[in-house]
Amino acid sequence: MIDRRPFVQKILKNRKDNLRVVSGIGTSTWDIMSAGDNKGNFGFIGAMGQSIPFALGLAKSQPDLRILLFTGDGDTLMSLGSMATVANHPVNNLTIVVLDNESYVETGSQPTATAGKSDLELIAKGSGISNSYTVTNENDYEKIMNTIYVEEGPSLIVVKCQAKATPLVFPYSFDGSVSINRFMSSIKS
């Protein structure tokens, strides 16, 4: 099991200029913010289930950028059909990293479906995202970096994480219009 916070920080350290990062509601947003403020980040703090469709729309609109979505098992489980949409309207520049701690940690660590019988890698593959795999230890760091920056997407990586609460790291702004305009300025420039 991976300690998600330092792992996300490691992935985002020395990030390349062509990377834009989106995060789903919950701990994922605090995770990417903990790696340092960056105009090329857009973090959801609501609209659960919409981060995968959002990342798909962004990837389709910016084919020369690499789009990386960090999200959780809870957010992903809410919109499983979006995996089928990603698979059938493919973009080669999208990587979805599901930080799967098998629980709704922010609400009291209730178990999610992945703590039971459900497997997001198999769901992704069954939806048609063929480049899907699961990692359980940090030795796969180089493989993940290659997927994010080099491999033809769409890809989905399930990162099995420890289910522990981590400190909240707030974004530049909680105002969505400030956040999205700042993010868009990183694309125009």
Binding site: V22, F42, A47, G49, Q50, S51, I52, P53, F54, A55, L56, G57, L58, A59, K60, S61, Q62, S79, G81, S82, T85, I180, F183, M184, I187, K188
Partner: peptide, 16 residues
């Protein structure tokens, strides 16, 4: 249908 909302917003963030 709800996924069309997120998709549309992501597309706009990317300039479409």
């Amino acid at each position: 249908e709800q996924d069309g909302v997120g998709l549309s917003c992501g597309a706009y963030a990317g300039g479409r």
